[in-house]
């Protein structure tokens, strides 16, 4: 069995299984755990609207803070959009999703996807360096963040190397890229990267909670 056979066979299968088991474990665990009973009188009954509103309002920084975090805000968006464009619109990736989901969607020309990936990677590297230098950022960055950054940056580097054939053996670098992404699959449920799946849930929860308390945030 070659490295690529392993990556595309057992590696892919087990990493997906672990990711799915891990994600359901987290969601079910949170929902079935004991929720603190709120004995106070609700200030507002519109908890659902509050939850949904927060999903949207949290997508932009609070007006008071905007000036201070504009850089983080904009680069954060560039990186997230770039990342998803690369993951979801690069044709070989679509072929992968189609094999799992059963349907496909139109993608970007490969060289355009490559440009997007390169910009995204540059922004991410810059954000990582900033995290390491900026005193406040440094304090709020944990090992969890660094591990996530290393896995994502290396997945992007190996992906770019594979798609440009910038390594003598395409199948080797492709295998390394796929294994790297499988590591990411396994890491997602057990790290802060869980926000990939939980961001909507957690925003909704905070929003409805605040609404009930009459907090406008």
């Amino acid at each position: 069995m070659t490295l690529l056979d392993f990556a595309l066979g057992p590696g892919l299968k087990w990493s997906l299984l672990i990711m799915i088991a891990g994600l359901t474990w987290r969601v079910v665990g949170v929902f079935l755990g004991r929720w603190r009973r709120d004995l106070s009188r609700p200030r507002s009954e519109a908890v659902v609207q509050g939850g949904l509103r927060t999903i949207i309002t949290r997508s932009a920084p609070a007006r008071e803070l905007e000036k201070n975090i504009r850089f983080q805000h904009i680069t954060g968006y560039i990186w997230h959009i770039g990342f998803f464009a690369t993951v979801l619109l690069f044709e070989p990736h679509i072929a992968f999703f189609e094999s799992v989901l059963g349907f496909a969607w139109p993608g970007l020309p490969s060289h355009l996807a490559l440009v997007v990936a390169a910009i995204t990677l540059a922004v991410l590297v810059m954000l990582t360096l900033r995290r390491m230098i900026h005193p406040v950022m440094r304090m709020i960055t944990s090992t969890d963040d660094y591990v996530s950054l290393i896995i994502i940056i290396s997945a992007m580097v190996t992906g770019i190397m594979a798609s440009t054939h910038m390594f003598p053996r395409y199948e080797t670098i492709l295998a390394v890229h796929i294994l790297n992404v499988e590591l990411l699959f396994i890491w997602i449920p057990f790290s802060k990267l869980g926000h990939l799946f939980f961001w909507l849930l957690s925003r909704y929860r905070i929003g409805s909670y605040f609404e009930r308390k009459g907090v406008k945030a």
Binding site: A7, L8, G9, L12, K13, L16, L17, I18, I20, A21, G22, L23, T24, W25, R26, V27, V28, G29, F31, L32, P92, H93, A95, F96, E98, S99, V100, L174, I178
Partner: peptide, 25 residues
């Protein structure tokens, strides 16, 4: 396609979700 991979079956994925749910409980 090369990138499709042999990721198993949908039943296996559902099985993994069931295992996760049991762990969650």
């Amino acid at each position: 396609p090369i990138s499709a991979g042999m990721w198993g079956t949908r039943e296996q994925l559902l099985g993994a979700a069931a295992v996760g749910a049991a762990l969650g409980v």
